[in-house]
Amino acid sequence: MSLLRAQINPHFFFNTLNNLYALTIKNSKQAPEVILKLSDMMRYTIYEGEKEKVKIADEIEYLKNYIELHKIRYKKSVEIIFNHTIDTNLTIAPLLYINLLENAFKHGIDSLSENAYIHINLYEKDNAIYFDIENNFDAKEKSELSGIGLKNLKKRLSLLYKNNHEIKTNITQNIYKTTLKISKNA
């Protein structure tokens, strides 16, 4: 389990540090905010990532920080909507959703020059926690949509939630959607 958690993409951290470097050269007022968000994310990954369960509220904050740091990178218009209508005191294994969000940026927004979007919904229904993420992508781009991150996520889910989870992926033309369902009883 530790090995699977350790494989969360460090590439993001390097990119963020490069962006931070550029912001400091420009004496940007965004630099302190970026440092704080990156610090919060690193703390969460290192310390909370080792825990068996964390509050959904903490996962939401982690995902929001990730989204905000990515927004700084883009010069293009990107629509990112993150709805979360869920009891934030519920607990879940840490760092499950980040791989899906990373993929939405890497294979979606990064491949498009305009009209890029990511829509995320985190909610509870029928005694389960649902995480839906949908993004568009450039269908002409040759990209491997099921890399190591998704494989690791599936391994973690099978170890943590055995028969108490379901992950579905649907690709239609230029839209990629993943739904992760985890039983609240798990």
Rank of each mutant, 00 (worst) to 15 (best):
F131I: 03
I133L: 06
A128Q: 10
L112H: 04
L145W: 01
D126G: 06
F105T: 02
I129N: 07
K106E: 15
K151L: 08
N99G: 10
I109F: 07
Y117Q: 08
I118Y: 05
Y123V: 10
L145P: 00
L150H: 06
N127Y: 06
A128C: 14
K154H: 03
L122K: 06
I118A: 08
E114V: 05
H119M: 12
K151T: 13
N127C: 01
I120S: 12
F131E: 01
A104Q: 08
L150C: 01
N135G: 00
H119Q: 14
K140P: 01
K155N: 01
D132C: 03
Y130D: 02
Y130M: 02
L95K: 13
K154M: 09
F137K: 07
E141H: 02
N115Q: 12
D126Y: 06
H119I: 10
N136V: 00
L145F: 11
H107M: 06
Y97S: 14
D138G: 04
E144S: 12
D110Q: 09
E102Q: 10
K154I: 11
A93C: 01
A139G: 03
I120T: 10
L145A: 00
Y117S: 11
G149P: 03
I148C: 08
G108E: 08
H119F: 14
N152E: 05
K125G: 02
I148K: 08
E134G: 00
L100V: 11
A104Y: 08
S111Y: 03
L100Q: 13
P94H: 03
N135D: 03
D138N: 15
G108Q: 11
L100I: 14
N121H: 10
I118S: 07
N103I: 13
S143T: 05
N115D: 15
K155H: 00
I120E: 11
N115I: 03
H107F: 15
N152S: 02
D110F: 02
N99I: 09
A139S: 13
L96T: 15
K151V: 11
L122I: 11
I92V: 15
Y117F: 15
L100G: 08
I92Y: 10
Y97D: 09
I129M: 13
K155G: 00
F137C: 02
K140E: 14
K140H: 12
Y97H: 14
L101N: 12
K106W: 10
K151M: 07
I148V: 14
I118E: 07
L100K: 08
Y123R: 12
P94A: 04
I148T: 09
N152R: 07
I109R: 05
N115C: 04
K142M: 05
S143F: 02
A139Y: 12
L145M: 08
E124L: 01
S113C: 09
E114D: 11
F131V: 05
L153S: 04
P94V: 03
K125Q: 15
